[in-house]
Design a protein around this nucleic acid. Sequence first.
DNA 1: AAAACGGGGGT
DNA 2: ACCCCAGTTTT
Length: 364
Amino acid sequence: MTSKRRKSTLKPALDTDTAFSQRLMHWFDRARRDLPWRRTRDPWAIWVSEVMLQQTRVEAVRAAFERFVARYPTPESFANASDDALMLAWKGLGYYRRARLLRDGARVVVRDHRGAVPQDADKLAELPGVGAYTRAAVASIAFDLRIAAVDGNVERVLARHLALRDDVDAAVGKRAIRAAADERLDHDRPGDHNQAMMELGATVCTPQSPRCDQCPLAADCRGLAQGIVMTLPRKKPPRAPTLVKARVAVVRQAGGVLALRIPDGEPNAGQWELPGPGALVSVEENEFSARTRSRCRAGIEVGPVLAEVRHAITHHKITVVAHAGALRSRNAGSLRAQEPTDPDVPWTTISRKVFAAMHESESD
DNA sequence: AAAACGGGGGT
DNA sequence: ACCCCAGTTTT
């Protein structure tokens, strides 16, 4: 057999790209998983799935997705959801702020687009919570628009295929990735192409132990040829974390414990947490009462330590010390009694960790 | 227990 | 170009 590789430089880019997408599509047609959001072309459902998938593994999204779209089948239905309903609908997925942004987006769809997700890439990008990635994903998967989606998976696949040594977080690296993604996009099946790239990154071209022997793109992968796959993509080193020693009080009342609904503007707004100065505020034990009073409008005295839990958010490493507490003011201010085990109360993750740790030490 | 991972918004 | 938001899974 003679090589089919062309020597001509007439249309080298096109030739290479066609082969790229053919190999990718052939692989995807065989390897694609049957997922609920791949059985619909409804742009709202696809939008929802993309937002969920940004933060959670496929398996966790499976159940949540079907429950969510059954409960909120249209942007309009979700636009009208209350904060509490939103929390419940998003339960188990974390990153509640994204659910709020999704609702903001749904509200704009209702207000500016008569409730229909706009079939236009620029209009999509104007929606709250829809950035470059989500815009590309929805536009290509729901509407067949020819826009390459670049998420972390795609970034990794391309950086390796190109042997791109630039920092992918810096402007030069971003431009290179973007250009490579656009160049390789399959114009006949843009939605499938984007999904295939992401699936390849998630299942074959994985961060730690890539299965290059199973990769449809290995033949012309320059990173593999140069033996630098594991070093890519290059990113700038993360910033050193800030250490926080936060404190909360466990004040038993009316069969539950006192809790604060986190005010708008603070992290985790709308969720419930144990009273204290806040999850990102370091305080000594003797400062607790004063700092808590200003935020919770209630006087709380703290006693013995019941539990310590650790939690990490962004560049904060938080140690939360949970004290037994007692209410000293006449009324509870902004605090309400809530049941720790009530599945309908959207406790913060830190609060749940505290309850779990207390439960463990009890059963010892 | 530490490390790894990621997309959107705001300044 | 920078910082902030916010968790789960893997090692």
